[in-house]
Design a protein around this nucleic acid. Structure first.
Length: 156
DNA sequence: GCCAACGTTGGC
DNA sequence: GCCAACGTTGGC
């Protein structure tokens, strides 16, 4: 059996929050990713059963707020073909898919949010992609060790 | 609201 | 294929 991998997904909570995910908004679909490196992770690396830290960005206190789990194989992001969607991409074709979605499910909300300052101040987490200068990747790998540390920091 | 750091686009 | 201009992300 393939080893489970760990990830961090960024989201702006006013668009799609952890609560939205827990409420099964859009059936858990994670769409609108429009960056090639993030797309490649979705398409090539992330597998069913992988666990995901859900991170709220672009707010006063950005933080990891919960854990999700991948519950589908990758599939073409339907918003790329929807001319009414904000994420519409006129260059995408059904036979030449550009953007990829996955479905997620909420696993658990952290008892305590682990915010960016908490993460920054833990020397064990200094290698995280999240902390790299200028890092804007919205889908990023997390090591198993770092994943567990954050879960630990997020429990009371 | 500012702006550094990236990513993308398009003219050449 | 280069690179200037422009657009976006996201912390502060």
């Amino acid at each position: 059996m393939k080893k489970r991998l760990y990830w961090l997904f960024k989201t702006e909570p006013k668009e799609y929050s952890y609560v939205d995910l827990a409420n099964n908004k859009y059936n858990g679909r994670w769409d609108g990713v429009r960056n090639y490196q993030a797309r490649n992770y979705l398409r090539d690396s992330i597998k069913m059963g992988d666990l995901v830290l859900i991170y709220h960005s672009s707010i006063k206190i950005p933080a990891v707020v919960g854990v999700g789990k991948i519950k589908s194989e990758p599939y073409p992001d339907p918003t790329q073909f929807d001319s009414k969607s904000y994420y519409f991409d006129s260059k995408a074709r059904k036979d030449k898919v550009r953007w990829i979605s996955l479905d997620l499910m909420a696993v658990k909300k952290l008892e305590r949010e682990v915010n960016l300052l908490d993460i920054r101040s833990n020397p064990k987490l200094k290698e995280m992609v999240l902390l790299r200068k200028g890092s804007r990747l919205s889908i990023q790998p997390v090591t198993e060790a770092n994943f567990k540390i954050i879960l630990d920091m997020g429990s009371k």
